[in-house]
Amino acid sequence: MWLSIAFLIGQTMMYASPIIFTSLGGTMSENSGVVNIGLEGMMVVGAFTAATVGFYSGNPWIGFLAAGVAAGSFGLLHAVACVTFNADHVVSGIAINFLGPGLSYFVSRLVFDGATQTRSLDLANKIPRPLDPLFGSNTFFELVLNRYATAYLALIMVAVVWFLLYRTKIGLRIRSVGQHPEAADTLGIHVRRVRYFAVIGSGVLAGFGGATLSIAIVSQFRPGLISGQGFIALAAMIFGKWKPQGAVLACLLFGFSQALVVFLGLRTQAIPTQIMSMLPYLITLFVLVGFVGKAVAPKALGRAFGEDA
């Protein structure tokens, strides 16, 4: 009983941590008024970069940071298109969702002898599990707390992004350019500069999310590793009403329902697996309809600065 609860909590964290990073990224970008559906593509770039750099440097943290840099540069690309050239945010995001995986596979083929799959890291070269030596195997605390460092980092990032958005000057500016960029402009805020910051930041966080999958949850990158997590993170962010604290709850709910599918799957053979695998989406839908009130997007979301409102 206790072990089952511990297993559920632990697996919830495992599933949730990559999408927490990414949905925080989405929160930053969208609060500044820039729609970012390119999160999925940025996650792929991050996952690939982390696995590749981690493999060659032998240090997972260098890989992790490199993932932030690589995906952040896709954030820059998105910012150039949407902020400087006022391109349609959705079109640019879709382009990034094609470009990110395409470029990753292409570079992978160059680096790994024609394979779109990186070579797997040794356990010692993956993101460490800091609490690993503290607990005996398969005890309550081990199952709950023996997580990869990225899981803890994801929770810390929630507080960081919350603090940034609601307790700092730059956070206030991000939110104001997302609500009414023209008004912010008359107050002397560099609307485009603030949006650049937020969009690049969202790329960096999405890259961390991808890295969490490729060098903590598993130990290599391959096509299909990121299959929809970026979109789930986007949904979680909307579900969480464009707030970091809301988004993290949505991610945890989604992670919990995934863990529940695995937990029930072994115990009830009566329910077909196809029905079971719908569970996370059904739970999310019911909670969204039943318990979460109306979500209000930032007013200037998706609208270019300087265009007629």
Binding site: Q11, Y15, L213, V262, L266
Partner: peptide
């Protein structure tokens, strides 16, 4: 792969 890892861990 994540669900495979989760199932196997259980």
């Amino acid at each position: 792969a994540a669900i495979g890892k989760s199932i196997a861990t259980q």
